[in-house]
Amino acid sequence: MSDFQVAFFERLRAALPDYQNLAQSVADALNISMNEAYKKIRGNSALSLQQVVQLSDTFNVPFIYNPNQSSSVTFNFLSVNEDLNMVNYLGDLLANLKLIQQSKTKHITITTDDIPIFHFFKYPELTAFKLFFWANNVNNSELKFDGSTITDEIIALSGELHRLYLEIPSTEIWAKDTVHGTIEQIRYAYEAGYISNKALAEKVVEQVRYCLTDMNMYAISSKKTIDPNHTFNWYNCDVLGSIAYLVDFKESMLCFNRFNTFNYLKTNDQFYCEQTKRWMQGLINKSIAFSGQGEKHRNKYLYESFAACDALIGEIAG
């Protein structure tokens, strides 16, 4: 029990913002003395089942126990109903991103064949289109995209998500066709009549171009803001296999795997996260660097992506 308990407290520590003391937080949550809290953190005093539940509920961190060291992995996921309430969806993303951003040591590594949605959040129409497209996939509906879904609440949530992501050091590994997935979604929506407004369709494509221009700026300086701590590394790998987000807190890790188009499974199983980290490092070793000095390959990739955007704008305008 002692080893599992110590590991549990390490996950609690990683979930706390820098300014929050673990022992004080545990003492407050369990209504015990600081001295007793330190004993439990060190594993010298066993947690009761009720205390485990109390800490898990308070800090939203599960206590994981695998009998006989079995290879099973526990995942959590946000249950989104058929209405696909995007405010709730974005709110859940925001809660997760805040926990990551508040940690003293953090880094996100992403493998993806679709542009990470955090880059879209700067652009309301593009964000709304992406959420609309996902909603249509879930509901198999015939809804029209006219921009009416861009509410003030969604704009506010999106802006905060974008700001937080810029402040988190990250490494992104994109596939060969990562950009084209979004372009083809816009083309399909326009040709199928889901977007009847030409100006709106062109604006969404233009915002994909803006998004790629942002990526180029991040890659040139190897950081997402003027703060040198907000580092950014960008790679291109022809074959990825899955969309995954790995958050490394140094003391522990957290992994998100995307599924069902827009949703994700989340686990802090350290063995699974370690395997994912090794897999991602292997991909990086086989990838072409776009950030820093990777100007030649990055420019070619972006040129082809911009050309695809321009071609679609031409189709819409014609």
Rank of each mutant, 00 (worst) to 15 (best):
S2P: 08
F4L: 15
A7I: 02
E10V: 04
A15R: 07
Q20T: 04
L22T: 06
D28C: 07
L30T: 04
K40L: 02
N44L: 02
S48H: 03
V52G: 04
V53T: 14
Q54N: 09
D57Q: 15
F59I: 10
N60P: 01
N60C: 01
V61C: 10
N68P: 00
Q69V: 01
Q69I: 01
F75S: 06
F77N: 11
S79H: 12
N85D: 15
N88V: 01
G91F: 01
L93F: 10
L93V: 06
A95D: 10
K98P: 03
L99S: 14
Q101S: 12
I108M: 11
T112R: 03
D113T: 12
I117W: 00
F120M: 14
K122R: 13
Y123D: 10
Y123R: 13
P124M: 01
E125F: 03
L126N: 04
K130F: 10
E142Y: 10
L143D: 14
F145Q: 03
S148P: 04
T149G: 12
I150V: 13
E153H: 09
A156T: 14
A156Y: 05
L161F: 05
L161H: 08
H162E: 13
R163V: 08
R163Q: 14
L166W: 01
T171D: 05
E172I: 13
D177K: 11
G181V: 15
G181K: 15
T182W: 03
T182I: 15
T182S: 15
I183P: 00
I183Q: 05
Q185K: 05
I186E: 02
R187E: 11
G193C: 06
K198V: 15
K203R: 15
V205T: 09
E206C: 01
Q207H: 13
V208Q: 05
C211I: 01
L212K: 09
D214Q: 11
M215R: 12
N216Q: 15
Y218Q: 04
N229W: 01
H230V: 04
Y235V: 00
D238N: 11
S242L: 14
D248C: 08
K250C: 02
L254N: 07
W279V: 12
G282L: 12
S287L: 00
S287M: 00
S291L: 04
G294I: 08
K296E: 09
H297Y: 01
N299T: 08
K300R: 09
S305G: 07
A308R: 09
C309Y: 10
A311Q: 14
